[in-house]
Design a protein around this nucleic acid. Structure first.
Length: 503
RNA sequence: GCCUCUGUGGCCAAGCGGUAAGGCAGCGGACUUUUAAUCCGACGAGCGUGGGUUCGAAUCCCACCGGAGGCACCA
């Protein structure tokens, strides 16, 4: 054994395991019956005064986060999912032998303890340990107790360690789960049914994006991982479900950066008999409700300015917003040459295949969206860029669609849903032609969906919210990887079975 | 895919051409009320990997592998 190996923390701890086993103790026992959580303990005994001793015996369990040995007295810090409490471990109480044994526990070990509730002279609620049990040995040491784990690569790859030692990481995910819970609860309250639809799709559709493909052996078929939830959910409107939603992973085979992870979470909700006007009120309510329940407030401070998420949000049409923000007139109904001239004048490039609508959208996307900070409902998009939305009732160049922009980014997207099968088929065919011409993001003709529409889909409003982006906003983080538990990373190198030898 | 930055013991981190600081954790010792406990002592890496330049490289160059940011594309 080399000096390095002899000194390695892991070998020392493996040796402790062997010693325990030799003494007839299982270092990985099957269970521990606790009678309360740390949070419950705190709630129950917070009234005690400094110096109190009680005869109340409790059983708690958690991870040992800190150990302070002090001669014949040892203090520990035990954490479970609800919080931390101090362990007061005295040689006088435990007996010399058990006390010495307790001191062989390592920071990071999972332990169960039984003890009497007390408060130290300094006022720290503690459990005076009368017996304890190792529940699971940690062979690897926890990172620095001051700095935690700072290396972002390690934080993402070993999220279990990140969550153990970095309070900020835990906080972000608490916000995430609270926000999603809030959204789910509100939709259910509104009579929406939560459903699950297939991840494996036979056609590419519901959004314009490059899909992942996979092969299904039993059917000898190429299938796509879904890029959107839209088309199955709208089939359910045809089936009479009237109000449905799904919160689920979608997959897009595109770049990875601070705003994009190849798998991410979408909420889509559809409501029969309404149109996009209902969706405005719905998204305002879902987002401000999620903010309130996840962070305790509807206003959020993001790099220097305060964003107010409470309803109502500003409503403005895309054409008016472009005019307002950059002082330029462009609209989907204008002459194509004129629209191109506008783009040229702004230094934006255009493609031959684009109509005035696509040109209008380009200006909005490139120059306007990023400048909008407060929640803004941007209404009435070009027909050309929205193949699943219903034509605008007052303007043939537009569709009834809005996006919500917050802090310069798109947070939600909604339409009055297109339910005319003849029109929908035409839109699909346009997409399929683009796909045939090499556009990897364009969709297929989904004939079954058209057939569904031919049976009749009620008029409906639909809404999509990018959950990850919402959480980024609520948690105030700049990278999508911070809000996804296990973000997509390249394979790790350098991990070898040699590092896991049992001795 | 391209550009820039980056990779030092389990963790944090200095060093930026002259032969690897320091802190935390761990190990040994002292200490029955500590709170990032404290004090004393001993130990642990040749600097992502592989080449190259040089009398000499963690420091410079090249390639490769991770990571971050930006560009392009998109939610």
């Amino acid at each position: 054994m080399s000096p390095e190996e002899r000194a390695s923390i892991r070998s020392q701890r493996l040796a402790k395991l062997e010693a325990m086993r030799a003494a007839g103790t299982d270092p990985y026992p099957y269970r521990f019956d606790r009678d309360r959580t740390v949070g419950e303990l705190r709630a129950e005994f917070d009234v005690l005064e400094a110096g109190s001793e009680t005869e109340v015996s409790v059983r708690i369990a958690g991870r040992l986060m800190l150990k302070r040995e002090q001669g014949r007295l040892t203090f520990g810090q035990l954490r479970d999912r609800t919080g931390e409490v101090q362990l007061f471990v005295s040689a006088g109480v435990l007996g010399k032998e058990a006390f010495a044994e307790f001191n062989t526990l390592d920071r990071g070990d999972w332990v169960g303890v039984e003890g009497l509730v007390m408060v130290t002279k300094k006022g720290e609620l503690s459990v005076k340990v009368t017996s304890y049990e190792l529940l699971s040995k940690a062979l690897r040491p926890l990172p620095d107790k001051w700095k935690g784990l700072a290396d972002v690569d390690a934080r993402y790859r070993q999220r279990y360690v990140d969550l153990t030692v970095n309070d900020d990481a835990r906080r972000v995910f608490e916000i995430r789960f609270a926000a999603v819970d809030s959204i789910r609860a509100e939709l259910r309250e509104r009579g929406y049914l939560e459903v699950e639809t297939p991840f494996l799709h036979l056609q590419q559709g519901g959004a314009t994006a490059r899909p992942f493909t996979t092969h299904y052996n039993a059917l000898d078929l190429t299938t796509y991982l879904r890029i959107a939830l839209e088309l199955p959910l709208k089939r359910l409107l045809v089936g009479g479900f009237e109000r449905v939603f799904e919160i689920g992973r979608v997959f897009r085979n595109e770049g990875i950066d601070t705003r994009h992870n190849p798998e991410f979470t979408m909420l889509e909700a559809y409501e029969a008999f309404g149109d996009y006007n209902e969706m405005i009120e719905l998204v305002e309510s879902l987002v401000s409700g999620a903010a309130l329940s996840a962070t305790g407030a509807t206003s959020i401070e993001v790099h220097g300015h305060v964003i107010e998420l409470a309803a109502p949000w500003r409503r403005v049409t895309m054409v008016d917003l472009i005019k307002e923000v950059i002082g330029v007139d462009i609209h989907p109904g204008m002459d194509l040459a004129e629209a191109r001239a506008v783009l040229d004048g702004l230094g934006l490039s255009w493609k031959d295949s684009w109509g005035s609508g696509r040109c209008t959208h380009e200006v909005y996307d490139e120059l306007v969206e990023s400048k909008v900070i407060q929640p803004t409902v941007v209404l009435d998009h070009p027909r050309e860029t929205s193949p699943l939305a219903k034509p605008h009732r007052d303007n043939p160049h537009l569709v009834e669609r809005f996006e919500v922009i917050v802090d310069g980014r798109e947070l939600a997207n909604a339409y009055s849903e297109l339910n005319d099968p003849v029109e929908q088929l035409l839109r699909f065919q346009e997409g399929a032609a683009q796909k045939a011409a090499g556009d990897l993001e364009a969709g297929d003709v989904d004939l079954d969906y058209i057939r569904a529409l031919e049976y009749g889909m009620p008029p409906a409003g639909g809404l999509g919210i990018g959950i990850d982006r919402l959480i980024m906003l609520l948690a105030g983080v700049e990278s999508i990887r911070e809000v996804i538990l296990f973000p997509t990373l390249r394979p790790e190198s350098g991990l070898s079975e040699d590092d896991f030898r049992p001795a």
